[in-house]
Design a protein around this nucleic acid. Structure first.
Lengths: 225, 225, 225, 225
DNA sequence: AATGAATGAGCGTTCATTCAT
DNA sequence: AATGAATGAACGCTCATTCAT
């Protein structure tokens, strides 16, 4: 069996796991079901992945890869535009991404909780859905570590560019600008999903209009000194 | 046993459950430990609550009660101020609340996911931490339904007041303003927690300054036409 | 449920485990079967015992208790006889004991392997049938530690007595005498069992005559300077 | 592939299995690890051996071969000495052998348990580490049967010789003498191992002195009418 | 009301064995 | 002969829930 075929099977398992984990929740998800959905035996799952946690980390790794590649595509397609436009384009891209692949978004947020938990050794407030011990042993967890700063640094790079080229006149620190914009997106995605996504309009707010409005605010934040 | 004693015991269980559920995560939490922490037997838990899910719903109900009462206190304490000030005060109150009682915040968000899931029968994107079947049978779940719109309507009321009294000059629909401000708060709380709360400053952003900055933005959103 | 009833149930489980563990071998034994044989649910086994290993240690503890009490009974029944007679009586008692309860004998030998393994940290030559980690956590393992020297010291005490009263004229160190006699018994029990116990006479050796002959040798060892 | 190469590979597997089985115990040993240690694929193990049990039987067969050849070498090297000297020399050889290759000793004892179990159909007292069904189907198990009496008959032959030539004056049946001496050796090896082998001196008994003492007893047993 | 012993379905994981190549 | 991916039965253990008292 070639490396390619092997990677394909790995991806098949990951795809099955994505469906199962995020439709039933990680804890309610059963490896048996993942295997069935992937058309493989349960045992084979453990040939490709160390544990259930490892599988979730594999999904998360894929999420990071996707995000990074999306950002890079966006940035290279508007290589000669202003920093502000780049930041807004990335925001736009992430918003679309997280709506299309909501579970990748959740996986990433979950990963952030884990990292934080492992940084502070305290257990207080630990609401993560993973068993830390097993997770830390996951090879995919280790792999993520090497790339998990990339998305942030791409955005912060764009912000700095915007400050340089004058398109961003906000005088807060780039990091401050970053977390502010990110808070808006995260909040939007969470509330939007809680409200039922694009299809329903709870509170009588049209998601598209709302999103447009939020980007208007983001633009204002970036443009105003 | 009097009603009072009974309510006290109920509250003792809920308090114990809060601690356990949110320090270990709902799935890792054990009823045994809740009972021990409450100083009661495991069996008695099931006299007061139908199930583990019911217990979480009881916590969520309490969370809603607290939020509502907090809002009402805030509103009555600044009864004669402008609508904008009321909205900002409520935002401020919620921010403090969610930082102090992070698990109430999480419980409410979790509840929102459940509601959405039960509205749409589709399972896609379901990431809730609860087994839907058991949850729907929870009496507390039913109780929450009767009050879950209250917080929203209090804020929207304040927004409308602000529009009336001229303190809020934003011409978007009150609902739009509401979800926008709420997205910012939710995103802030989530990111802030992911960054390690008040104690650490990942990305070199000071949480207090960041919060102040966000409220500045919120003020601007409300004030600008 | 009283303490007595609880202890009875514990003993019922231990008895069931004895049967299953030693008829199929520890590894082939299934907790399910132990539960069935005890007439209880599988879960209850884990209410009374921490793990499968703990259960084996409980059996071993019982084995030690039995041995010690057997020795004490023997010794008190021949309180005024010579040391040599005491030693021989104990040997006789152990031989009967290990033939009647062969699994107790095996359990004790197994325990000795474990102790040795935990003394030396080296893994070389480790043929024990237990997972060291789990075993060390077993409360019964800890309990055994407090009594595991008792049988040896009772015998060595009797040997010293015999040396004092002149019935034992062997001038080797008491410990040397002890291990020598014990080697004979252990070898006898092992070979006897391997030959099929009392019922068959492989090699055309009658077990009773053989045993008598071995005791004659033991007597000689003790009596001869 | 020639027969030679094939036998070499078989031996490589057996050697690997010896290491793994006896360092981790048969049940904790994994075929995967055996394969890795032998430098072969897991699948190939099953080309050479029917099952894990078969592999253990192969080791046991090798153990018997070694014993027999050791005995024969010893006997031919002292062809013209007395029967007693031959018996003692064999005992000496076995003692050395079992200390050097403890696992061969264990394998042989294990085999004896199996034989006994298969003779009696009763399961009582069965403490073997093997699944009887699979073992009986092992070709190596069948092979052992054809030679398993050889070591015994060699020793008994020497005993008879000693009786003839007058060096052995013990008037017990040769078989009785055989099992007696063997019990001493088996007990010695077992206790010695339980005490931690040659390196430590539990009970303050020096293994070498003890062994010398035991051979003195053996000599006495053989020499005394 | 209260206890805590008892239940049993459920799950992640392991690993000897098989089989397509 | 040889590989190693694939299988699937098996098992120890957990824990929400129930129930006899």
């Amino acid at each position: 069996m070639g490396v390619l075929e092997r990677q394909e099977k790995e991806q098949a398992i990951i795809r099955a796991a994505e469906e199962v984990f995020f439709s039933k929740g990680f804890y309610n998800a059963k490896m048996e079901e993942v295997a069935a959905k992937a058309g493989l035996s349960k045992g084979l799952l453990y040939f490709y992945f160390n544990s259930k946690d490892d599988l979730l980390m594999a999904i998360t790794y894929k999420a990071f890869e996707r995000i990074i590649s999306t950002y890079q595509k966006v940035l290279s397609s508007i290589q000669y535009k202003t920093g502000k436009e780049k930041v807004l384009a990335i925001m736009q891209a992430y918003t679309e991404f997280s709506q299309k692949y909501f579970y990748y978004h959740e996986a990433i947020l979950n990963y952030m909780s884990i990292v934080r938990l492992s940084l502070e050794q305290e257990k207080k407030g630990a609401t993560g859905i993973l068993n830390m011990e097993t997770t830390k042993q996951s090879p995919y967890y280790q792999k993520i570590k090497s790339i998990h700063n990339k998305p942030v640094s791409l955005v912060i790079g764009a912000i700095k560019e915007g400050v340089q080229d004058g398109s961003i006149r906000n005088r807060q620190k780039p990091q401050m600008i970053y977390v502010t914009l990110w808070a808006i997106i995260i909040g939007y995605v969470k509330l939007n999903i809680s409200m039922g996504g694009q299809d329903t309009t709870i509170y009588h707010v049209n998601p598209d209009k709302w999103q447009a409005y939020l980007f208007q605010i983001a633009d204002h934040i970036l443009s105003t000194p």
